[in-house]
């Protein structure tokens, strides 16, 4: 066996290209989670620690869907349609039953409340689905691979890669070109004024929270066929999404997209340099951003002062 080849191995351009695609796939999933996180943060001023838990519930929901339907070809499509809606309902319940009671309380209590949900969901998931790692098969149509610029790449990952920008566009359209979006942005800007102008602020809060939960649930469903479904996936995603939000700027929609792209790609390449500790490479970036631009790349310095 030729050991020297291990040390002189230099990744070829095809490998690097595949790794870039991997990073971008991860970016798209990260964007789905962090856009919801940043939306809830921007509009409601609540840091929803339970956002990673909703994502995890989405992945497990997809697993349950698969077992219920016995792996029918359409089961994945059904999971994409149904599970995120169910997660949105869970989110709506969290907002209605828990968060609503303490909007008047100190920020500390709001942080602690969503944290309590994280703790409970973490154990509920172990209770319901067990501690073992679960998996969902890829939909049969997308199980193959395609050749892209000479690189063989799984079609499923490519689908996410294509889906991401569409979802980003849809979200942008919803926020900036519909009446609902206008109301949401008005509420984010000045809650009291919006209220005075006749906007039903509590209803907007519920809807925004449900939208964020839907996005997290969708990301969970989409990640299920390509990642391991474990009871600890809530924490890794919430930490990464937080890094995304800090890098991009608190409450900034485009910041979430930019941050997700940066974090996903850097992680994909960081893993080549320090295997198994890719988290550290994105932390270095975050530390840099925090020192140079504490309000994030696309954030608003005033928003930082207000919190």
């Amino acid at each position: 066996m030729d050991f020297t080849s291990l040390f002189t191995w230099v990744p070829g351009p095809q490998f690097l290209f595949a790794q870039l695609l991997n990073g971008l796939t991860r970016s798209m999933l990260l964007f789905l989670v962090s856009s919801g996180l940043t939306l809830i943060l921007g509009v409601m001023g609540v840091a929803n620690f339970a956002h990673g838990s909703l994502y995890m519930l989405g992945a497990y929901g997809s697993f349950t869907m698969g077992t219920l339907l016995g792996g029918a070809p359409s089961s994945f499509l059904l999971a994409v349609a149904v599970v995120p809606l169910a997660i949105a309902l869970v989110g709506g319940l969290i907002e209605r039953l828990l968060l609503r009671r303490i909007y008047e309380a100190e920020g500390v209590m709001q942080i602690l409340l969503t944290y309590a949900v994280v703790l409970m969901v973490a154990d509920l998931v172990r209770l319901i689905w067990g501690p073992e790692t679960r998996g969902v098969p890829k939909p049969t149509v997308l199980a193959g691979a395609v050749t892209l610029l000479g690189t063989i790449y799984p079609s499923y990952n490519l689908l996410i890669l294509i889906l991401g920008p569409f979802l980003a566009f849809g979200l942008w359209f919803l926020l900036y070109h519909t009446a609902f979006g206008k109301v949401v942005r008005a509420t984010a800007l000045d809650r009291e004024m919006a209220n005075a102008l006749g906007i039903n602020v509590p209803r907007i809060f519920t809807l925004v929270f449900m939208l964020g939960a839907w996005l997290a649930g969708l990301a969970g469903v989409l990640t299920a066929p390509i990642g391991a479904i474990t009871p600890t996936m809530d924490l890794s995603i919430i930490v990464e999404s937080f890094v995304v939000v800090v890098i991009g700027g608190l409450g900034s929609f485009w910041g979430a997209l930019l941050g997700a792209l940066i974090v996903g790609v850097i992680q994909a390449f960081g893993i080549l340099i320090v295997p198994r500790m890719a988290l550290i490479s994105i932390f270095a970036i975050m530390a840099l951003v925090l020192i140079l631009r504490p309000w994030g790349l696309l954030g608003n310095p005033r928003a930082l002062l207000a919190r």
Binding site: L41, F283, M286, L290, I291
Partner: peptide, 25 residues
Amino acid sequence: YFCVRLHGILFSMLTLAFGQVIYTV
């Protein structure tokens, strides 16, 4: 040094992140 620059929720999230890094290492 990094965390106290931030307030409220940001501080919390950053401490979580640093804690996870120390744990992961």
